[in-house]
Every structure is written in C-alpha cells, then in structure tokens.
Design a protein around this nucleic acid. Sequence first.
DNA 1: GTCTATATAGGGATAGAC
DNA 2: GTCTATCCCTATATAGAC
Lengths: 210, 210
Amino acid sequence: MARRTRERILETSLAMFNAAGEPNVTTNHIADELGISPGNLYYHFRNKDDIVGQLFARYEQRMDEALTAPQQRLPDLEDVWLQLHLVFECMWDFRFLYRDLVDILARNRTLRLRFGRVLERAAGAARQVLHGLVESGAMRASSSEIEALVESILLIATFWLDYDAVRHGATREQPQRLARGIHQVMLLLAPYLREAERAHLTGLAGAYRA
Amino acid sequence: MARRTRERILETSLAMFNAAGEPNVTTNHIADELGISPGNLYYHFRNKDDIVGQLFARYEQRMDEALTAPQQRLPDLEDVWLQLHLVFECMWDFRFLYRDLVDILARNRTLRLRFGRVLERAAGAARQVLHGLVESGAMRASSSEIEALVESILLIATFWLDYDAVRHGATREQPQRLARGIHQVMLLLAPYLREAERAHLTGLAGAYRA
DNA sequence: GTCTATATAGGGATAGAC
DNA sequence: GTCTATCCCTATATAGAC
C-alpha cells in the first residue's frame, strides 16, 4: 500500500489546494480528509513543501508537454487555439499554484527558479508560433510588436484564473472560464491578423459574452 | 497621542505588508516594529482584518481619485499616460493588496465587493477614455474591440506588479517597474492608433528594454 | 506503513493593572 | 493609552509503539 498512500496524499493535496488555496490547507487537513494520521503523512513526505514540490514537478512536466510545439509545418490559428487549450487546462489542474503564486514562489527559492524556466519556455513557444503566423502570412507584425505580444500573452495567461475569480467570483463553470481566457488571449492577436482570420476570430466573440 | 499611535500602526502595517506580504506579517510583528505592546495595538484595532480594512479604505479613495476623469475635453495619449501613472502609483503604494489579492479577497466578503466596485470603476474609466480617443480620431476601434481592450488593460494593470516580481525578481527599481507596466498597457493600444501616435509610442519602446 | 501521543512554536486576541 | 501576562488555538513536525 506504500505507493498507493503516497499517491493518494498527492491527489488529495492537489484537490484541496485547488479548492481552498495552498496556504489555507494544513497537513492535518489533508490527513483528516484521507482518514490517515498526520504521522503517516509525514512518513511519506518530509514536510508540506515537499508535497508542493512533488506537485510542482508534475505541473512542470505537463506544461512542458503542452509547450512543446510538435508542428513540422507553419502553425495556423487552429493550432494556436489547440495549444492554448492544453496550456490552460494544465493551469486549471494546478490552479492552486497561480492563486498564490507570488507567496508560494517567495517562500521557495527552487520553485522560483523552476517557474522562471517555465515562463521562459512559454515565451519561447509563443514567440515561435507568432513568427510562424507572420511567416505564413496569417498575420503582420514587427519583431518588437511580437515581443510586446509575447509579454502580454504570458501575463494574461498566467493571471487569467485569478482575474476571472476576482472579477466574476466562482460563479462560472470551468469550461467557460477557460474558454474565455483563451479567447481573451486570442483577441490580443486580432489587430495583427489578416482580414479573413480577424473576421473569423471576432465572429466568435459573441459566444463569450460576460 | 491616540490618533498618532493609530496612524503609526497603519503606516507601519502598510510598509510591512508591502515588504513581506500581508499573510507573513503578524500583529505581533507590527507591534514589535513600532516598539509598542500587542495589547496596545488591539486597543486601536479590533483585529488584523480591521487594519487591512482601514488601509483598503485609503486605497479605495486614492484609486477613486486616480480614476476620476477630470477632462472637459477629449483625451489624448498624454492624458492616458498621466492617468495610468496615477493608477500605477496607487497600486504600488498598496501593492500588498495585489500580491495576495485572491487570498485576501477570499477571506473577506466586504473587501471582495469593494474591490469589485473598484474594478468596475476602472473599466468605466478605461472605456470612456478609449471612446474619447476614437472620437478625437487618435485611434480606430469598434465597440467590441474596445471591450476586449478594456478587459486586457484591467488584467494587465491589476497583475503587472505580480508578473514583474515573478519574472524579474525584486531586482528592478520602483520607477522602472512602474514605467514598464504603463508601457505594456500602452502597447495594447498601439495597433489601433493612428500612424502618428503609433510611431511615437513604439519609438518609446527602446527606453523600456528588458 | 500506520497509529497515538506529544513536543514546539507561533499567531490572534483578551483581562486587568497602571 | 499603554503595558504585562496570559489564554486559546492551530500548525508543523517528531518519537516510539504497533
């Protein structure tokens, strides 16, 4: 039962962190929820940070996969949408990380560096896709415009869930929250798109009202 | 000395919250720093939330002033820059609020509502300014484009400090951090601007490199 | 592997003397 | 208004029995 318990602790921790925020979930809460003793939990993990660290490793791996551009060809808008979808679903599954991002990273130097690397990778992926869209003629933008876009995309993606929570509470359902975030990122590209793509994109706007 | 002590508690709390994050500063820390007893602190404030609430009231008032559009005429880009400057300086002075925004608002229903109203006001101000720019001919944008812009502006402004901290650490000096944030918001408008304004804006980009 | 029991520490908050 | 002393509670983490 060893691996199983360790695994259950990770799963339950993730669920509870996501639901209530990592700072508000104690090791005792987790043990209680699982019906095991706090001592048992500490048999499997050195401390709470260890649990967070293990979850972060999974997050990292998942995000790396989402950011790995498998395209052998130039990307189109559909590819962008798909990749954003993978990224946003990963962020959703590990949303506890984003909810208290500054605090969590401030308390853990290692996570700060690792998250910095994730952001770098994301910036690289975004840069590459945008240049691809320019190359294929789907969009027109200078290098400096692309750099500004990359920064805006990263920021909006990173904090979308927080923004949405603050602005609209927990009223919304998960699929719509993600869809709105993805749409919001896509809209950043709109003014740089060729007429056809632009019209198609703004046509979708109606589906994401308030 | 009554008013004076109360005032000093607020000032010191604000400084310590901003420096270390509100969740990491206890009432005992605050009392220690001031050289007063915890009991004294609790004579002046019901509890820690009370302190946060009082600080929030000041934040609210300051932000309200920054968002009040005093223009009797149509705004130009210079006006936008100035207003953003006022808003960002307010956010900086109360940055503890933004650092742990989700957590702070989750624990306090009243603050959640009040912050929601600040966001609404900000959205209204942004909307008004953007429509003004269109009206004066400085920019071309449809109503739905403006709505998307408003959302992006709010999100980027709200989380700029967090993003900057996560991405670049505390290495940067305050004026440059704010200037970069303001610039990042302005760049959202760039593709919608008339050539002259657009050139002027992108010309400034060099000043805000990395 | 798992439990019970407990050590240690710290935070929020109050009572009552001065 | 301010201090000292303290209560209560909760969190992290460990020791040692089973």
